[in-house]
Design a protein around this nucleic acid. Sequence first.
RNA 1: GGUGGGGUGGCAGAGUGGUCGAAUGCGCCGGUCUUGAAAACCGGUAUGGGCGUCAGCCCAUCAGGGGUUCGAAUCCCCUCCCCACCGCCA
Length: 478
Amino acid sequence: MIDPKLLRDNPARFRDGAAKKNIAVDIDRVMALDERRRAVQADQERLRAEQNKLAKESGPRMGQLAGAIKKASGAEKETLERELAELRSRPAALKEKIQALDGELSALEPGLNELLLTIPLPPDDDVPVGKGADDNVELSRWNAPPTPHWPTGFDTLKSFHHNRGFVPKTHLELVRDLKLADFERGVKMAGSRSYLLTGDGMLLHNAVLRYAFDFMTLRNGFTPMSVPVIVHEACMVGTGFFPAGREQAYHIEESKRGGGGGHDLFLTGTGEVGLMGVHQGEIIDEALLPLRYTTVSTCFRREAGAAGKDTAGLYRIHQFDKVEQVVICKADEAESRAWHTRMIGYVEELLRSLGLPYRLLQCCTGDLGPKNADMVDVECWMPGRGDLGRDSRPLGAYGETHSASRLYDFQCRRLNMRYRPGGEAGQGPTQVCHSLNNTVLASPRVLIPILEMYQNADGSVTVPEVLRPYMGGKQRIG
RNA sequence: GGUGGGGUGGCAGAGUGGUCGAAUGCGCCGGUCUUGAAAACCGGUAUGGGCGUCAGCCCAUCAGGGGUUCGAAUCCCCUCCCCACCGCCA
């Protein structure tokens, strides 16, 4: 959520931000509702103050009178009753007014709160303005240098054949021929975009996840975590995936079961939700910041609206596993930016160690979600992807494998995660934390570049050297 | 799933209709004393929101929601969570 105070001070900034992101929100309506709410609230508070004062002043007298009336009779009783009735009439009138305002508030607030949740975080000024993915800007490329295994290295400007001397198979062909995955049975069991990983396919999947997890925890000091992947709606709203992405999440309607009770639950589409939810509603000890968490978790995505897109293979699927990194730091733009660079750096180092050519893309404003101020995607080279050449074989293309988001306080405000500057003894108000997140590695999607890049002319696949310890020393598949 | 007991400030723990945003202890911060520290003593110490140029004022919050009442931490209803025992279970 954005800071309502900032909205009041500078609505134009949020109007612009939403426009740049291509997100439709009626800022003027939010402002009007917000103003009305505060006016009603102020009225109500004034009346309450009066009510409290009256209760304090005349309350005890009322008690006395009520007691005296019980004992009294005749004219005396009548006098007392009259006095009591008079004392009661004023607070009673106040109460009616307060309740009327209460009614107005409860009619107003749900709508306002819902609208506030839909206002996106404005993109940073240095994010290029654009309509969609086509306007993203390439920041850098990394091409695999020569190795003993591949003396030529790999240059993505040249064809796979030129680089390696043979025509590559696509990952679909490789997993079929090497029996690494089974799409037919996956679809039989769970419908489209479902799959099984079998044999060496499963081993490779586990190996690369474990390698990435160890890379973040053992080598880079991130705290290893296991977090829930079925969560309450509050976690989804708090992390900013709802309401905008509601259609993307699997929904478990526990509340609809017989017997009543039970909260609805949602399957998370990324470990980010679980990691960010950990400290929901907490005031974090400043000395513990920045929190650096990493988790490996199964991710569930409905892929609503993606019908017909990337339907084949391991690219776009409903269930996958992902190592995710999250940083929760102080409210400081420079620190947030520094972490962003660092978190992308981890991914670059990881991909380089795997020998996978990649590029960094600065996402344009139109490609940002509601919750980020800035986002950098990492795309790996996938030889079996892209347009077909004259031989009806794919020419190769970059495919998104990572996404690094910088969110300022957008998430932490919704999650109510704060810290007190100056620590325990610190004076002054609490501050909302900043948060960032970035993929470390998602599999099986990353198996696509691994299999396609490491295939050999004879149809086998070499196991990347860094993964061999995680595969019992195995050097080759097939 | 069954039965019983609970949920109060950073923590522990009082409080069963007004004098309670809340005793007391611990912790924490500041001070006195001390060569220094400890002890002792004194003072301070929740969060969110609104108004105000400042000083400050006001409102809300005792798990959450609703109700009774002039007035609720306290009474009533619902929900959630925790603990104990029993049952079931990977």
